[in-house]
Amino acid sequence: MLIVSGPTGGSEHDGGDHPERPARIAAVMAGVDDLHLGTDVQIVAPYVANPAQMARVHDTAYLDELAAFCQAGGGQLDPDTYASADSWSAARRAAGAGLAAVDALRQRDDGVAFVVARPPGHHALRDRAMGFCLLNNIAISAAALTANDERVLIVDWDVHHGNGTQAIFWDDPNVLYVSTHQWPLFPGSGTSQEIGGPRALGRTVNVPIPAGATGDVVRRAIDEVALPAIDDFDPTWVLISAGFDAHRADPLADLALSSGDFAELARMVAGFASRPGRLVLFLEGGYDLGALRMSVAATLGALLGDTYQPEDPTCGGPGAEMVDQARAERDGALQRAGPLAPSERRIR
């Protein structure tokens, strides 16, 4: 069973010819439709995130300022990021869509949820919009889960490092953040030596990979660098920052993945969930509409046992050495940091 939370953002928060645009939502839903799921898909209406839910990860001063900025008509927040008059309500629905997805899975206790919502979130910091993102959607859902004593694994396979998500959970031992991302590239963070704060050493895993890297390199990064941390963490929920801009057709970056690679990654990450009904995908980047549609269909198809695969997985690109280097640098940083947190999993 696929639970789609949304779609939301298909007409609002419109920046004109900006690549993070409402038409992305129609492309995503076309990808869902390509699977012809019939009664195996359930559409869930997004919540509107309330102040207390947002304040778990954002400063209230920032929230107030963003709301007022949008109410005044909006404008550019930085060279990349815009807000329009309706962006505040769109962002709250995008954040609430994640919360609705989690609740829907809790009620069913099986299935996979996909949050089809924009604006995206993983660059949004506690006190600042950034990189097309206003509210950190995945962080708001993860924080709601940890408030209920869950241990949350976030896998971020967007081509850009999720600096906002990392920063929000930097010192939180109940969230494990894993990112593979092109390097060097915006936002410039995400080195393998960034391993988490004093209370959460090892709870951040970064594997930067070079332009031109193919799907086998990303899988190797998860397998060889992230897997030990994931095994040790033993998550109860798995959330995916599912950006599809690592696709070779994407105009904003230079990795060389195909839609088939996202299918392979999805199968791999789904295996980290503690049991059925504990996996949620959040739409992040992905700016070539055709690639976005194919990648969404391939990803969801893989999770639902469908054989839909419009493109083969890729291999042979550069980056294996960089993955090995990331593992060595991370191990070194962990050794320098001293003994890891005690075996007690849940730390308050």
Binding site: E65, L66, A72, G75, P79
Partner: peptide, 17 residues
């Protein structure tokens, strides 16, 4: 005020941040 900064508002101001 650089490119992208919004006059009269702290939000989005590199100098303020």
């Amino acid at each position: 005020r650089g490119q992208g900064a919004h006059a009269g508002l702290l939000l989005g101001s590199t100098s303020h941040e």
